[in-house]
Each structure stands twice: as C-alpha cells, then as structure tokens.
Design a protein around this nucleic acid. Structure first.
Length: 454
RNA sequence: GUGGCCAUAGCUCAGUUGGUUAGAGCACGAGGUUGUGAUCCUCGGGGUCGCGGGUUCGAGUCCCGUUGGCCACCCCA
C-alpha cells in the first residue's frame, strides 16, 4: 500500500462507485425535471465573505478556505449552495420569471470530522422555488423531495417527512408569553430532546410554563393531521368543505391555534399532492439555522437509524441579505451519503451489473466470433458499424474461442443481445435475457432487426 | 476539535506464549472439457502485514508516535 491516500473524509470512485454516484445524481435530476425545475450551477469555490455574511465568522472553522499563493483574497470551497443561489438570483432578479424554480447537484465541502453519513466531500442536491410565498410552493418543494424518494423505491413506511412551521410556532409561543430569547432556548431543547431522559426533558420544558401533560406532547413531537374519512390521499382528491384537522387530543392539550392557522393550508396542499401519508407534523423539528422563516422540514429514515436524509424550509429574507430584492423562497438540500446508506439499509441500491444497467452503461450488442477461422477478423468491423449506428457494442477481451465462455462474458457485462458470427456473411442474434437465438441471417437483416438501417 | 475502538491480498477473514519462505475463500488472469450462459478440474499473478520508530537473537504478533476508518460528543448551513 502506498503512502498516498485520499484525504480524510473524501472518497475514490472506482467503476461501481462512480455508477452508484451516477445512479443517485440521475435520480435527482429526473425528479427535478419531472417537477419543472431548471438546472443551475455556480463555482465550486466562492469568496469567503459569501459564507460569513450569512453565518458569521464562526463558520470559518467548518470551511476549507484558502488564498492563492501570492494572492490576498480569501476563498472557500462551497459548503452549501444557498448563498450561491441567492447571489445568482439577486444578480438577475428583475428578468427572472416568478416563481423561479431552480435545482443543482454537485460536490460540496465541509471541514468536519468524518463519521457515518458525514464526509468532508459529498454531493448535494438542492431544489428551490423563489418568488412564491404560497403554501403551494412549500408543498411543491416537499413533493419534489418525496418524488425522488419514491422513485428510488422508498415508501412512506421507510422514511418520514417531518414538518414544522417556525413562524407559527413562534407566534403561538409568544401568545403564551415565551419571549424570542427563551424561544431560541426552547428550540435547542426540542432539538436535543432525543438525547436526554424523558423526565429531564419534562422538567426543562416546565421551565417554559408547560404542564407535565403538555411536556409529554412535546416529547412525542408529533401533531397528527387528520384527513377526513372517505378521502384517499393517493388519489389527490380534496374536498374543500372537509379540510384536514389537527388531532383533537393534541390540540386540546396545547391549544395550537396559531400553528393550525399556518399549517392547515399546507396540509391541504399536501393532501392535494397525494403525499400526506409521508408527513408527520412534528413540533420538535426546528433546524439549526436561524434564517428559516416559515415551514421547515427534515426527512428521516423511519426508525431513526441514520442522520437526516434531507432538510429544508422557507427562507424569505435571504435573497435580500445578498443585495437582491425582497424575495420569498423555499427549498431543500439532500446529500448523497445518507441517502446511499438508507438505500443500502433497505436493500434498494442496485447491485453490480444491475447498477450499470440502471444507468445505461451496459452493452446493447456483444459480438462473439464463431469457429470459422475468419470470424475473428469480422469482429472489429461489426463493432465499428454498430458503434457508427450509435449502439453500445462490445466484444470479449478473453482469448478463448469457447462460445459458452464468451456468452458468459457477454452476460457478465450485462449485454442485452449477443451477435454470434456464423460465417463471412451471416450472424445469429441471441437475446441474453430470454435465451432465444435466431437462425443465422445476413448481417444487413440482423442490423435491421436491431433497428439499424444500413 | 475531544475521547474510545480498529487497520493482514481488490473483497471477507485466519494467523498458536513473539519463532522457518504469512494463508484460505471469493474476485482476477491462463489453460482444459468438440459451438451456447451452470457446475467442474489444473495452473498463475498478486502482500516491505497502513506508515515510522522502539524493545528483542527474532515482531503480522509487544510498546510509542503518525495516518486513515468506525463510534460517541461538539457541530450540523
């Protein structure tokens, strides 16, 4: 083994790893495009200021920052996309459609200690809607995220989307005389509730004026939204006269009037989008960042086994912070690391050749020489003609002439069709999935069967 | 950043109180079985045992350091 290793928290991508990465990024791209987002991107490093403006100087220790040799400007590898997004939007806000729907997927860097689900270099998918303050936009962002999860075979039993509303929670708490400073502490407490025993949590919550019974509701975190009987959420039919309602057992204990005023329109949109099954309204989801102004959400593996798969929310003040016009915005980010782990956990990550098949990297046609002495010489011209016609064509690199072994090689490489050279003018086509093999036919006819006009 | 555990072939691992030239399975390569994907047989390439230093007649094995991984804390945009 060499002294040269990949830097801490980075990964090497051998073919199977690169295929897995492409599988994930292509899934992201497809989900984005299905939902009408357009791809954007920015530089992979930015001026350091871009990040300190939003998050303060404290963030610098979490960044890979540098100066050019002999230069004086400070740069940083991008740790997230939102500041770049805000910068891009602010620069052209006047000429952009409202709303603007943008997505991006690419590498990001954070100088943290690596552990399960968290690396120093990772890929992240971001999707954002700018210029739309409606709950419909909030729901659409969540729906895009769910669409991706669903396309990978995950179900609402595998993962849960935990939704909260920061502004509503704040308004409600204020109505109970919990002032903003205390709220920040309460949010921290909610965030950390999983890391302490229930009695300790109850005691700490009581300091904010909540009863033991109310503390228990906080402990559980969940606020059930009841969809009226007779409505099938998956059919995306909502009876406007029968909106969803907060579970009375929670409502009566916490009196969540402000919360429900903000959340009900969103819940209705989520029902309309057919994804209410995936959603848990959860008072304990607050997200660390101060810049969220409304809806916030996180996606978690259902048993809580891994870190958050995705997270996001509404940030109506951020574009302004980057010198753009006041612009409501909502979006989320999803990293490839935790997503990959969850797919592995659930047996949903395609294995070996299936993975290559899923990304379209397996051969359409595999050319196999027959026993005739000249057939070996015919392999390369056939490959060339197939490739000129745009087909992914391969031949074996093995030296054997044993047709069985060559067919095995074709199969191992995931080929769909084997073209077996029978004579100078004729070939047979074998469907490697079904095992069906044609009689020998003229090359032109074989090409025609493959949909190639000569 | 702090602490704990770990590191032997591409992968999964074995390796005796410290003792000859460090092994197996899988994977990979070559050959065999008369031209059809399985199974099988034979042979082969591959390791300064993560790296550096120390103890010892002798270190994969013991000690120290270092790098990397995993786990928890901090943080999580």
């Amino acid at each position: 083994m060499s002294d040269f290793q990949a830097p801490k928290g980075t990964r090497d991508f051998y073919p199977a790893d690169a295929a897995r990465r492409r599988f994930i990024t292509e899934s992201w791209r497809s989900a984005s495009i299905r939902h009408g987002f357009e791809e954007v991107d920015g530089p992979i490093f930015e001026h350091l200021d871009l990040y300190t403006v939003k998050s303060g100087e404290g963030i610098v220790s979490e960044l890979f920052s540098f100066q050019r040799a002999g230069g004086e400007k400070d740069y940083a590898l991008r740790p997230e996309f939102t500041p770049t997004l805000a910068r891009l939007y602010a620069a052209r806000a006047g000429s952009l459609p409202k709303p603007t729907r943008w997505f991006t997927a690419g590498p990001f860097f954070r100088a943290e200690k690596p552990q399960r689900g968290r690396l120093r270099e990772f890929l992240q998918w971001n999707a954002d809607i700018l210029g739309d303050a409606s709950p419909a936009a909030d729901a659409e962002i969540i729906a895009t995220c769910v669409s991706l999860l669903s396309s990978l075979g995950l179900t609402s039993k595998d993962v849960r989307v935990k939704v909260n509303h920061r502004a509503a929670l704040s308004a409600w708490l204020l109505s109970r005389n919990v002032q903003p400073e205390a709220q920040a502490e309460l949010f921290k407490l909610l965030d950390a509730k999983g890391k302490m025993p229930a009695p300790e949590f109850a005691q700490k919550v009581s300091a904010f004026g909540f009863s033991a019974e109310q503390a228990e509701v906080f402990q559980k975190g969940l606020v059930r939204i009841t969809v009226p009987a007779g409505i099938d959420p998956s059919k995306a039919v909502v009876d406007p006269f029968k909106p969803p309602a907060i579970d009375p057992s929670v409502r009566d204990v916490l009196d969540l009037t402000y919360f429900s005023d903000a959340v009900m329109p969103l819940a209705k949109e989520l029902v309309a989008a057919g994804i209410i099954d995936w959603i848990d309204f959860d008072l304990s989801i607050v997200r660390g960042l101060a810049y969220y102004t409304g809806m916030v959400f996180e996606v978690h593996e259902a048993t809580g086994a891994e870190r958050a798969i995705a997270g996001g929310g509404r940030y109506d003040n951020l574009v302004e912070l980057f010198d753009g016009p006041a612009t409501p915005a909502v979006g989320f980010g999803m990293g490839d690391v935790v997503l990959g782990l969850v797919l592995e956990d659930r047996g949903l990550m395609p294995k070996e050749i299936d993975l290559f098949r899923r990304i379209g990297a397996t051969p359409d046609v595999f050319v196999i020489p027959g026993p005739a002495p000249e057939s070996e010489l015919l392999v390369k011209p056939l490959l060339a003609r197939l490739r000129a016609a745009g087909r992914h064509a391969r031949a074996s690199s093995k030296s054997t002439r044993n047709v069985g072994k060559l067919l095995k090689d074709a199969n191992d490489q995931g080929a769909r069709i084997a073209m077996i050279i029978e004579s100078k003018e004729t070939v047979a086509l074998k469907d490697l999935a079904t095992g069906e093999q044609s009689q020998p036919m003229l090359v032109a006819e074989a090409f025609a069967r493959l949909g190639i006009r000569l």
